[in-house]
Every structure is written in C-alpha cells, then in structure tokens.
C-alpha cells in the first residue's frame, strides 16, 4: 500500500492564484472548520486562547515580501499538501497508513492505521503535514475527499472547503491531469508553476504568479515639474498650467 500506485490520468488538485490572494485566512479557517469534523477529525488545538497556542491545521497562509525597494511587493502565499505524484511521504510510511489513491491521486493518511511515527512529515519538503498530539496520528490536506464526492451536498458545494470559502476566487479545484480542464487551461495561459520543482516529488497543485505591475514592474517615477514637456500655447494648455500652479500651492 505504501508503494506508489501506477500514475493515474486523473490528478485532482488546487490552483492558487497569487495575484488575487489577499491573505485573509478564510481558506485556512474554513479548512480547519470542515476538517475538524470531517475525514481528518479531530484537528486538535492546544492552549488555543492562551499565550502559546498551537494546533493541527492543514492549510497555512504566509505573507512574503518579494523584490527590493520600490519594486518590492507583498505576496500572500497559501501552503498545503500538493498531492505530489512521487512523494516520499508515502513510501517512508512503515504501516501503509500514508497512501496515494490510484483513482484520483489524492494523498491521504488512514487515521486507523497511522502509528504516529512522524516520519512522513520529515519526508515532506513543503511542511504540509502536521502531527496531532491529542489524536496521536498525522494530519494533512485531504483535498476534502469527503466533500468532492459527497452526493448529500448540493453539486456546487462539492469542492474543497478552502475553494468554497475564498472570497476573491483565488483558489480553484479540478483535474490537472486533463489538459482540457478549466484549471489546466488557466495554468497554461497564466504560466502556472509548481513549488520546488527541483526536488523531484512532482507536485500536482499549481500556483499562478502575480501579474506584472501596470507600471511595468519598476519604481514609480517622480518626474520633476520642469521636465514636463512644454505645452503648445493653446488656451486649454494655459488653463491646465494655471490650474496646476494653483493646486500645487
């Protein structure tokens, strides 16, 4: 079971648009809310309202500063399991509790057979697995396997909780193994990338880069007033020049 299945044609995953993510944490909190009662239940917390709160979360939203000086920008960066195609977190598992589903590529932990050795979390370069100290087993993103196939939910709700919750539409869910799917097409047009490609686990999830800034991604230019090209001496130009002087006082 711990050995990886033959590659599946269906590769369910998330596409996260770093251009429009505002870092509101709605995906992280809705993930916690759904999964503390779903497949990964419980997601225990310790000292949640005290001075040293900690707990198992399956989705974390970082905010990074990227670039230097005036061309620097803030990038909000949600991070969860990437449901890699060839991850060692599955193969290092001594019990077979950590497994990759052959039919859709979702990587899951069986909470009934996990012994809580934590080795899978050591094997993950993305820090995507979090140990639940109360439950004694490893927790990770399930891609809301208990939502996406759940026929008791309305059809529009059969997406991961994080996707459903995102107020800006920065998260999309779909089959990244199908080049004709909406998510795959979006990845192709926007130049979507995977994380730490060099590591070789072949992540399925994709990230869409921040779009180039409208000012051509350069520092704002402070153009001196003198440098404004001399206008022709039309009445309108004189009027604008006068308005500019008045407003600049």
């Amino acid at each position: 079971m711990t050995s990886l299945p033959a590659p599946s044609t269906r590769k369910l995953g998330l596409v996260i648009d770093l251009d429009i993510c505002v870092g509101c944490q709605a995906c992280a909190t809705s993930c916690k809310e759904w999964n503390t009662g779903g497949y990964s239940a419980p997601l225990s917390d310790h000292d949640p309202y005290g001075a040293d709160p900690s707990g198992a979360w399956l989705n974390r939203v970082h905010s990074y500063e990227v670039g230097e000086g005036a061309s620097g920008q803030t990038v909000h960066f949600p991070r969860s399991c990437l449901h890699c195609e060839e991850p060692d977190c599955v193969t290092v598992c001594p019990t077979g509790a950590s497994f990759k589903r052959a039919e859709d590529g979702i990587v899951l932990v069986n909470p009934d057979t996990c012994i809580g050795c934590k080795l899978c979390s050591w094997a993950c370069p993305y820090g995507a697995r979090e140990y639940d100290h109360d439950d004694g087993v490893m927790k990770k993103c399930t891609l809301c396997v208990d939502r996406i196939y759940n026929e008791t939910l309305a059809e529009e709700d059969r997406v991961p909780a994080c996707v459903k919750a995102c107020p800006t539409g920065a998260r999309a869910f779909g089959d990244l193994g199908d080049p004709k799917s909406e998510v795959s097409k979006n990845v192709a047009t926007r130049g979507g990338f995977s994380l730490l490609e060099e590591f070789g686990y072949k992540p399925v999830n994709r990230y869409l880069p921040p779009r180039p800034r409208r000012d051509g991604h350069s520092a704002p230019v402070n153009v001196p007033v003198e440098a404004i090209p001399a206008a022709d001496n039309s009445v309108a130009e004189k009027l604008f020049a006068w308005a500019d002087r008045v407003l600049s006082r």
Binding site: L18, G23, A28, S54, W57, R60, V61, H62, S63, Y64, E65, V66, G67, E68, S71, G72, Q73, T74, V75, F77, R79, P125, Y126, F193, S194, L195, L196, E197, E198, Y207, P209, P210
Partner: peptide
C-alpha cells in the same frame, strides 16, 4: 525555489501564518 517567486526578486517572510 520553495515559493516559485524568484523571478520577482528575493523572498522574505513578512507576516507569519500563525
């Protein structure tokens, strides 16, 4: 490499997720 944002410059943490 970890964030895939190298094309935009160096990456530094601004706000932690927790």
């Amino acid at each position: 490499m970890a964030t895939g944002l190298g094309a935009l410059g160096t990456v530094r943490p601004l706000d932690p997720p927790h």
